[in-house]
Amino acid sequence: MAERIQRKSNSSVESSEVATESLSSDSDTGQRLRAELDDLLDEIDEVLETNAEEFVRAYVQKGGE
């Protein structure tokens, strides 16, 4: 199983590196990703807490570790 994971790790990391490199050269992909970002910015208010100031102010923890 370790071997299986190892192999997955190779392909997965490499593909992400390849993906980053090809992004700038591929303008179609670049455009699609910019459209995706616009979609995200349109929907982000759905998940943001409604009362920002109160949520931020009340986010108080104790010190850890």
Binding site: S9, S12, S16, T20, L33, E36, D39, L40, V47
Partner: peptide, 16 residues
Amino acid sequence: RLARHEQVESVVAETD
């Protein structure tokens, strides 16, 4: 959300 919109790269497979 950024990941769902392909704005970030992942390194490990979901199955793992």
